[in-house]
């Protein structure tokens, strides 16, 4: 892999990777560290990475890093505490999406990760399985459970409104 191809990967995937990690870990500094480490590992192994699977490779490295961090440090800050304008150029979204992102924060880590990979990155179940090291069936179960929870959350909030 040439330097140019590596840099193209940075350009194409670093934002998505950062978003995925940040949404999971809710800590800007740690999220940045994980992204930096991920690309460092990618650079070191660049000649062994299949060019068609660069994105999956990056997400795999990042996912396992963030799982390690979460397990090592259970003390997680609230995503709400993070100033949106420090990481986002889009700070306005619909009420529904606000509620939904609120609901996402309530999901268990594994369900949250697979739903983010599914909805944000559009990965298929087998790809999510490859990234997370879960079986495809586990991925499906976690997504189904997650959706049920989100639906229930939305319905309950709508009922209150």
């Amino acid at each position: 892999m040439t330097v140019s191809e590596y840099n193209e990967s940075v350009e194409s995937y670093s934002d998505n990777l950062y978003r995925f990690v940040l949404k999971n870990i809710k800590d800007i500094d740690k999220a940045k560290d994980i992204v930096q480490d991920t690309f460092l590992k990618f650079w070191e192994k660049r000649d062994n990475v299949d060019k068609s699977k660069i994105k999956s490779y990056l997400f795999t490295i990042a996912y396992h890093s963030l799982i390690d961090v979460i397990r090592r440090d259970k003390r997680q800050g609230s995503f709400d505490d993070v100033k949106e304008d420090s990481y986002s150029i889009q700070t306005e979204y619909s009420d529904l999406q606000e509620i939904l992102h609120e609901a996402i924060e309530q999901l268990p880590e594994n369900q949250k990760a697979v739903i983010l990979l599914r909805d944000y990155e559009g990965y298929a179940y087998d790809e999510i399985a490859e990234i997370t090291g879960m079986t495809e069936s586990q991925v499906k179960v976690y997504i189904f459970r997650g959706r049920k929870f989100l639906k229930k959350y939305l319905v309950s909030v709508e009922a209150l409104i």
Partner: peptide
């Protein structure tokens, strides 16, 4: 409605990743 719409988040330290 449970389908998430991705937030647009920018990784500002991108420059440091380039080789």
């Amino acid at each position: 409605k449970t389908k998430l719409v991705a937030l647009s988040i920018i990784f500002k330290e991108k420059e440091s990743l380039f080789q």
